[in-house]
Each structure stands twice: as C-alpha cells, then as structure tokens.
C-alpha cells in the first residue's frame, strides 16, 4: 500500500435503509468502502463492519472515526455530525465548488446550499410524509411490478408522460392503479411518477440561485430517469456526485481527518 493511500480517517453513515462507510487517505480520496443494508442493531453492525473496514484499509484503532446518519449517536468512539453537514463536506470535496446539493434518500430528501468554503449556508428537508422521498417511487413501482433496476429503461421507453397529480404516496398509489385500469401505458406512468416526485423536490428547493452547480447524491441519484426529471423540473443541469451513496460517509471521514 502506497503512502498516499494510507487511511487517515474513517467515516460511517448509519442511514435508515443502508449502512455506508469509507476510509480516506490524507488527500481525501476514498481508499476503501462498504455498503450494507441497515440492521436494526446499529451499534453491533457498526462494530463488526468498522472492524472489517479497518482491516481492508489497514487502519488501526488510532485512525479516527466520524459518524453521521440516523444512527450516528449509537456509533461508539466516534465524533457525530448530522447528514446535512457531512453531505455538504463530502459533496464539496468531490465537486470542488459551491452549489446546491439535492440528496434524495429513502426516508428523507434534503436540499443543502453549499457555501464557498464548503459550509452549509442553508438547508431544507421534507416533512414527515414520504411524498418527496425515494420511498414514494419504491412503493408505487412495487405496485406496478417494475423492478427498480429497470426503472430508467421503462421511463426512457415512454412516448409521453402520463400526468400523476398526487404527490402523496397513499393517494398516488390509488391514482396509479386507476390509470392502469384506464389502460394508460406503464412506461408513461413511470415517467409521470418521476415528474411528480421531481416537482415535489423542486418545491423543496425553492428558488434556485443561478450561480454554482446543482449536484445530486443519495441512492436515487443512480436512477438516470430521476436525474433527468429533476433537471427538467429545475430547468438546470444536474451533476451526480461521484459515488453518490458514499457522500455522507465521506463527509463524516473528512470531518475527523487529522
């Protein structure tokens, strides 16, 4: 292992659906990472998985650990920071300029304005309901029997988007059922669902500043149909932060980097 790749800090993002961790070197580059489904016992999962990561990255117990995500406070021997701060740091490290970061997660959607120094200038989050989150898509695509892996292909095949007016997960579910019953093509409905979700996220983002980039992170960023829908709703080019799922963990590691 070269000197540059020597791990100097670890970061854990204990989210509600997935558990993510990275090890970074002195330049901030990721030298090792782990992604697992979240287990109910976050403390135990972290203890086990962090040990694996330390071995992989060759990081002994002296290498500091930063934690974020809902489970952050249950990660032992770590400095904890919220996902907001960590996502901003992680995204800024990768994109190297200020902008607006949109993180569509399983349970939460966050819109974070990253300042010139990589700081959080402003943020907003969805309210309690799942209307603007990845969960919205997941529930309804399940209803339509569209596998998550094929979502983008489905949407791409659509000749036109079918208007889905409800953004409430429960309402949209029944609306979609009736659209199918009316004989609307599933492809068009899938595209319409993305547009509905994108409009909800755009509302959360408010008026966008014209300067700076628009970045996207979180698992949903891996879905090209969503990226396209979001770009349409915002009227801006949307750039995906590399390794979008690891942005929070990266930020947590950067926060404790010596």
């Amino acid at each position: 292992m070269s000197d540059a790749a020597k791990a100097v800090a670890l970061g854990v993002d204990a989210g509600s659906t997935t558990w993510k961790a990275v090890a970074i070197d002195a330049t901030g580059a990721i030298v090792a990472s782990l992604v697992e489904p979240a287990e109910p016992r976050i403390g135990a999962q972290t203890e086990r998985a962090v040990a694996v990561l330390r071995t992989q990255a060759g990081a002994d117990a002296a290498v500091p650990l930063g934690a974020t995500g809902y489970g952050r406070k249950r990660v032992a021997a770590a400095r904890s920071l919220t996902e907001i701060t960590c996502h901003a740091r992680g995204a800024f490290a990768r994109m190297r300029r200020p902008g607006v970061l949109i993180d569509v997660g399983g349970q939460d959607t966050k819109v974070i304005r990253i300042g010139a120094a990589g700081d959080v200038a402003d943020f907003s989050m969805n309210d309690k309901c799942a209307a603007g989150t990845g969960r919205f898509l997941e529930v309804i695509l399940g209803r339509l029997h569209v596998p998550l892996g094929e979502v983008a292909a489905f949407a791409a095949r659509a000749e036109r988007s079918v208007l889905v007016s409800s953004t409430c997960t429960v309402f949209a579910e029944s609306e979609v059922v009736s659209l199918v019953a009316e004989g609307q093509p599933v492809e068009g409905i899938v595209k319409g669902l993305h547009a509905a979700l994108a409009s909800r996220v755009a509302a959360l983002a408010g008026t966008m500043p014209q300067d700076g980039g628009v970045f996207m992170s979180g698992g949903v960023a891996l879905n090209p149909a969503m990226v396209e829908a979001l770009a349409g709703a915002l009227g801006r080019r949307v750039e995906i932060v590399p390794d979008p799922q690891l942005v929070g963990a990266l930020g947590a590691a950067l926060a404790v980097r010596p």
Partner: peptide
Amino acid sequence: DQRAYASEQ
C-alpha cells in the same frame, strides 16, 4: 386543491 383529494377512494 385536487392534490388533497383521493378521487379513487
């Protein structure tokens, strides 16, 4: 506001 009405239900 039609967004607040579940027409199917």
